[in-house]
């Protein structure tokens, strides 16, 4: 796992505030109800910071952010390097 993915996981654990929940790269977040769709803006901004990319929000659907692995794949797919 990359450092960035690890940082994202730590961020998500802080965000969901549920003791005892473990999150790894493949934990379903949106479809399992762990994260509500409103928190996804926060995750998307964090993803931009970690990847140094600009992610056009309009090209992202909930399923693209369902796991940490998918988030980074989405950033690769639709992200643009930041100046």
């Amino acid at each position: 796992m990359t450092d960035e993915a690890q940082q994202m996981i730590e961020h998500i654990v802080r965000l969901i505030r549920k003791p005892g929940v473990t999150v790894d790269e493949n934990t379903a977040l949106v479809s399992s109800g762990l994260i509500d769709s409103m928190s996804l803006i926060d995750l998307l901004v964090k993803l931009e910071d970690l990847t140094h990319m600009r992610i056009p929000a309009g090209k992202v659907q909930p399923k693209d952010l369902d796991t940490v692995a998918k988030m980074f794949a989405t950033a690769q797919r639709v992200g643009k390097p930041r100046k």
Binding site: S37, M38, L40, L44, G58, Q61, P62, D64
Partner: peptide, 9 residues
């Protein structure tokens, strides 16, 4: 509205 990640599918 266009579907987006903020709207529950």
């Amino acid at each position: 509205a266009y579907p987006n990640f903020k709207i529950e599918p």
